[in-house]
Simulated scan of single mutants.
Amino acid sequence: MKKLLASAIALMAVTFSYAQNNHDVTTQLGNLNRANVDQHGKQNSDKITQKGNRNEADVSQYGEKNENVTWSQGNRNDELVYQSGKRNSNDTWQKGNRNDATTKQYGKDNSVIQKQKGDDNSVYAMQCGNRNSITQDQNGDDNEATSTQYGNDNSAKQTQKGDDNKAITWQNGADNVITQSQDGDDNSAKAKQTGYDNKITQKQVGDDNILIAEQIGDDNTIKQTQRGDKNYAKDLQDGCDNEIIVLQIGDKHDHVGMQIGNNNSQDIFQTSNSSGGDSCCNAPEMPDPRCSGSGDGC
């Protein structure tokens, strides 16, 4: 009995000791790849895979139960991950050449997912708070996505397809949501929110379009959509329960909207299509002339 009890205690000690340990798996296939891993705390997990040449990865983890997975295929791709807190997770996937990915997480239960396919793309995600989430997906060349979150329970999603696109989100508060989608080349989208329960949705299809949206307050909503080329829309809201909806179809439209106060609403629609409208205003028939000649009187 004493031997059995001693064995059980020893097994528990080994299990407990293992649970305190950090875990890392690094795989490199190619030449001149570099990986640096620095783990402090317990039960942190890291997995790095590099396929190609001259790829670099730097991972630092402080705290408990943080998780990181980075995967890169190609040449000269860079990854930087910094996690401080508990149960933060990062998943970065890169395929191509000279791509750059950065994730910084401070707090608890934050999540970042990054995916890049192409060359010379860049993604940056920074979270300071709890239960924030960022998803970044880029397909093409020379695209840039940046997302910054302060507070709790904020969400940001950025999707870009094409070349030379740029997307920026910034959030401070709680329960804010930003969604950005760009399909084309040389597009730019910027969204900033300060407060609670705000929502911004930006979508662009075409080339050389610009969208800008900023909200300060609570329960505000901005929706912006542009389809075409060289369109511009900028909206600002300061207050509570405000809403702006903008839809522009065609080329070279521009819109600027601003709302300060509470419970304001705008709805803007612009198109290059000249069709539509009423062809008849239901006017009565023109009367018959009663005079035989001009200026003769009746």
Rank of each mutant, 00 (worst) to 15 (best):
G184Y: 01
Y106K: 05
G228I: 02
D197H: 08
E243Y: 14
K166P: 06
T92V: 11
P287K: 05
I244D: 07
E214I: 11
S294C: 11
K47L: 09
G96L: 06
Y196G: 01
N22K: 04
N75I: 04
Q138S: 11
A35F: 03
T70S: 09
N139M: 10
E64G: 13
K157M: 13
N33H: 00
Y124S: 13
R34P: 04
T92P: 10
N263M: 12
D153I: 08
Y150M: 03
D251I: 03
N21C: 14
L5S: 06
Q105E: 04
S275V: 07
G250A: 03
N187M: 01
D278T: 15
K42Y: 12
Q204N: 03
A189E: 06
Y62G: 10
N66C: 11
Q237T: 01
A191I: 05
K65M: 15
N121K: 02
T103L: 07
I9H: 06
G276N: 02
I244M: 09
G85E: 07
C291T: 15
N44W: 06
I249K: 04
K234D: 08
K86R: 14
A125V: 00
Q171I: 02
R98V: 08
G217S: 06
L5A: 08
Q193P: 04
G41P: 05
D235R: 00
H23C: 10
G85T: 00
G217C: 05
H23P: 05
E144V: 11
G250R: 01
T15H: 10
N55A: 03
Y232Q: 08
A145G: 10
T26P: 10
N66G: 14
A57Q: 00
N209D: 00
T169V: 01
D207L: 00
D238G: 12
N97Q: 13
L5E: 09
L4Q: 07
A57N: 01
I245S: 14
Q224I: 13
V81T: 01
D24P: 07
S274I: 14
T179P: 05
N44P: 10
